[in-house]
Deep mutational scan, measured.
Amino acid sequence: GPREVTMKKGDILTLLNSTNKDWWKVEVNDRQGFVPAAYVKKLDSGTGKELVLALYDYQ
């Protein structure tokens, strides 16, 4: 199956793709996968990378 990404509340993840309104593709610890968009919030990183903050645990 697809590689699952797990996250804990407060984690910072790299946002790869947010074109789908329900599932965003993120990368964390060299793993890529989809997380519910409602579970993360975009951060203003000030760099080229888009980052998101995990609002809830997800696994």
Rank of each mutant, 00 (worst) to 15 (best):
G1D: 11
G1C: 15
G1F: 14
G1I: 13
G1S: 12
G1A: 12
G1L: 12
P2E: 11
P2K: 11
P2A: 13
P2C: 15
P2S: 13
R3S: 12
R3N: 13
R3F: 15
R3K: 11
R3T: 13
E4G: 15
E4M: 15
E4H: 15
E4A: 15
V5T: 05
V5P: 04
V5R: 02
V5E: 02
V5H: 04
V5I: 15
V5D: 01
T6L: 11
T6H: 12
T6A: 13
T6K: 10
T6S: 14
M7D: 01
M7A: 01
M7L: 06
M7T: 01
M7E: 00
M7G: 01
M7W: 07
M7R: 00
M7P: 00
K8V: 07
K8M: 08
K8N: 06
K8S: 07
K8D: 02
K8A: 07
K8I: 07
K8C: 09
K8G: 03
K8H: 08
K8L: 07
K9C: 06
K9R: 12
K9I: 07
K9M: 07
K9Y: 04
K9T: 06
G10W: 04
G10C: 04
G10N: 05
G10L: 01
G10M: 03
G10K: 01
G10Q: 02
D11A: 06
D11E: 08
D11V: 04
D11C: 06
D11G: 03
D11W: 07
D11K: 03
D11Q: 12
I12S: 02
I12N: 02
I12C: 05
L13N: 00
L13A: 06
L13K: 00
L13P: 01
L13D: 00
L13H: 03
T14V: 15
T14F: 10
T14D: 04
T14L: 13
T14A: 08
T14R: 11
L15F: 03
L15E: 00
L15Y: 02
L15D: 00
L16N: 02
L16Y: 03
L16M: 06
L16V: 10
L16S: 02
L16C: 05
L16I: 13
L16Q: 03
N17A: 09
N17G: 06
N17K: 06
N17I: 07
N17C: 14
N17Y: 06
N17Q: 09
N17E: 14
S18A: 12
S18M: 09
S18K: 08
S18N: 07
T19W: 09
T19G: 08
T19A: 10
T19R: 11
T19L: 08
N20A: 06
N20M: 07
N20I: 05
N20R: 09
K21C: 07
K21R: 12
K21S: 11
K21Q: 10
K21V: 09
K21Y: 06
K21F: 06
K21M: 08
D22H: 15
D22F: 15
D22Q: 11
D22N: 14
D22L: 14
D22G: 08
D22Y: 15
W23R: 02
W23P: 01
W23K: 02
W23E: 02
W23M: 04
W23H: 02
W24N: 00
W24Q: 01
W24E: 00
W24V: 05
W24C: 03
W24G: 00
W24Y: 07
W24K: 00
K25Q: 12
K25T: 06
K25C: 14
K25W: 15
V26I: 09
V26K: 00
V26T: 01
V26H: 00
V26E: 00
V26W: 02
E27T: 06
E27L: 11
E27G: 08
E27I: 11
E27Q: 13
E27M: 13
E27F: 07
E27H: 05
V28E: 05
V28H: 13
V28L: 15
V28Y: 13
N29P: 03
N29A: 09
N29Y: 08
N29F: 08
N29Q: 08
N29T: 05
N29W: 06
D30N: 13
D30S: 11
D30V: 04
D30K: 09
D30Y: 07
D30G: 15
D30R: 07
R31T: 14
R31G: 10
R31I: 15
Q32E: 11
Q32H: 09
Q32L: 07
Q32S: 10
Q32K: 08
G33M: 15
G33F: 15
G33P: 02
G33T: 08
G33N: 05
F34S: 03
F34K: 02
F34M: 07
F34Y: 14
F34R: 03
F34C: 13
F34H: 05
F34E: 04
F34I: 05
V35E: 01
V35T: 01
V35H: 00
V35Y: 02
V35G: 01
V35N: 01
V35R: 01
V35W: 02
V35S: 01
P36H: 04
P36D: 02
P36C: 07
P36G: 03
P36M: 05
P36F: 06
P36N: 04
P36L: 06
P36W: 06
P36S: 03
A37R: 09
A37N: 02
A37P: 04
A37K: 05
A37F: 03
A37I: 04
A38D: 08
A38C: 15
A38G: 10
A38L: 10
A38I: 10
A38P: 06
A38Y: 08
Y39A: 08
Y39M: 10
Y39I: 07
Y39D: 02
Y39G: 04
V40E: 01
V40I: 06
V40K: 00
V40G: 00
V40W: 03
V40N: 00
V40D: 01
V40M: 06
V40H: 00
V40C: 11
K41Y: 08
K41M: 15
K41T: 10
K41V: 14
K41F: 09
K42M: 10
K42L: 12
K42C: 07
K42F: 07
K42V: 10
K42E: 05
K42S: 06
K42P: 08
L43E: 03
L43W: 06
L43M: 08
D44M: 11
D44V: 12
D44E: 13
D44F: 13
D44P: 14
S45V: 11
S45L: 13
S45D: 12
S45T: 14
S45H: 09
G46F: 11
G46D: 14
G46I: 13
G46S: 13
G46H: 12
G46M: 11
G46R: 08
G46L: 12
G46K: 10
T47I: 12
T47Q: 12
T47M: 11
T47W: 09
T47H: 12
T47C: 13
T47P: 13
T47S: 13
G48P: 08
G48Y: 07
G48A: 10
G48E: 11
G48S: 09
G48K: 08
G48N: 09
K49P: 14
K49E: 10
K49V: 13
K49F: 09
K49G: 08
E50G: 09
E50Q: 15
E50A: 13
E50C: 13
E50P: 12
E50M: 14
E50N: 13
L51A: 05
L51P: 01
L51G: 02
V52Y: 07
V52D: 00
V52G: 10
V52E: 00
V52F: 05
V52I: 05
L53V: 14
L53M: 14
L53C: 07
L53I: 15
L53S: 04
L53F: 06
A54T: 03
A54G: 02
A54E: 00
A54S: 04
A54L: 06
A54H: 01
A54Q: 01
A54I: 05
A54C: 09
A54M: 07
L55H: 01
L55Q: 03
L55S: 01
L55C: 05
Y56W: 08
Y56P: 00
Y56C: 13
Y56E: 10
Y56M: 11
Y56L: 09
Y56H: 10
D57G: 05
D57N: 09
D57W: 04
D57Y: 06
Y58M: 03
Y58H: 03
Y58R: 01
Y58E: 00
Y58T: 02
Y58G: 01
Y58N: 01
Q59A: 12
Q59M: 11
Q59E: 13
Q59I: 12
Q59P: 15
Q59G: 12
Q59S: 14
Q59D: 13
